[in-house]
């Protein structure tokens, strides 16, 4: 069985070496990210009766901003580190596919803009990993589901870590390709299994 895997003997990090947040209240939050984020997700997608009602949008944007400030790289890491590798019974965190220093968040570029960007550089376990696209897709889907839609998510293959990194990055950045891929039931099943360890 193991012979069929791209990388049969990956390096595995010790669970105690994985980055966590020290400090109790914040840890608690990270333990149950779904509960926290679901609130934000629902309020953000709830249909607004009159989207041009200024009072409504102003008050909403204010609460969004408060919420926005609570999200940092560690929390993004906590959302994606438990994702299972598609071929190993191990998490992307323990395989060092996702790493805390490779997560970057940029705040809205202007006072009027409300769009934040999360950039995640992933490191495939080996340079010819054929599953890099699926792993990247899993990370993108996980964050699209967990983060409010105000976040634009850019999942990239870390430079120099994959033989076709640029091509995979381009594919992962193409919303139309991602949308079409997610209508494929087989792929959806794979991603569902990868994300089943997140909840």
């Amino acid at each position: 069985m193991d012979d069929n895997k791209d990388n049969a003997n990956p390096v595995i990090l010790n669970a105690s070496d994985l980055p966590t947040r020290h400090g109790e209240s914040l840890l608690k939050k990270a333990d149950d990210p779904i509960g926290i984020y679901l609130g934000g997700l629902l309020s953000a997608t709830q249909p607004i009766d009159d989207p041009f009602d200024e009072a409504l949008s102003a008050s909403e944007s204010e609460s969004d901003r408060d919420f926005d400030e609570e999200i940092d790289a560690q929390e993004i890491y906590d959302l994606i580190a438990p994702i299972s590798d598609p071929e190993h019974p191990l998490s992307l965190g323990s395989l060092a596919v996702v790493n805390l220093p490779d997560i970057h968040i940029s705040r809205p570029s202007s006072a009027r803009s409300r769009i934040s960007t999360v950039v995640i550089d992933i490191t495939p376990t080996i340079t010819h990993c054929s599953l890099a696209t699926v792993i990247g897709l899993g990370v993108r889907v996980r964050l699209e589901q967990a983060l409010p839609p105000r976040f634009r998510i850019d999942v990239r293959i870390k430079e120099g870590t994959h033989s076709t990194g640029d091509a995979v990055t381009k594919q992962l950045g193409d919303k139309e390709r991602v949308a079409a891929a997610l209508e494929n039931n087989t792929l959806r099943g794979v991603i569902r299994r990868m994300l089943s360890t997140c909840e």
Binding site: A44, I48, S57, R112, S113, R114, I115, P149, R152, K175
Partner: peptide, 9 residues
């Protein structure tokens, strides 16, 4: 116009 469809693309 910014945020033409709220926070969506």
């Amino acid at each position: 116009v910014e945020n033409a469809h709220d926070i969506f693309e």
